[in-house]
């Protein structure tokens, strides 16, 4: 679970950082960027979620 969370940690930081960069350049499109950013983050998060699901299955089922 911890190992699986490393990648999404880096990736989400990158997504958020780039989104903030874009907002900093053009603050007027912040409303368009933020939903896209959140969707991208949720997709980036998925590998961490997979490892979490596997951890849960090992914990509770196997």
């Amino acid at each position: 679970m911890g190992l699986g969370a490393i990648g999404p940690g880096v990736g989400e930081g990158y997504v958020g950082g780039k989104a903030l960069e874009a907002i900093g350049r053009n603050p007027s499109i912040a409303n368009k960027i933020i939903p896209n950013m959140i969707v991208a983050m949720a997709i980036t998060e998925s590998t961490a979620i997979y490892s979490l699901v596997i951890a849960l299955i090992i914990l509770f089922v196997v």
Binding site: S46, I49, Y50
Partner: peptide, 16 residues
């Protein structure tokens, strides 16, 4: 599997 695991993992992890 990926679509399902993403949704399930998030919701279940929140409850847990």
């Amino acid at each position: 599997i990926s679509l399902a695991a993403r949704l399930f993992g998030n919701v279940f992890a929140g409850n847990l």
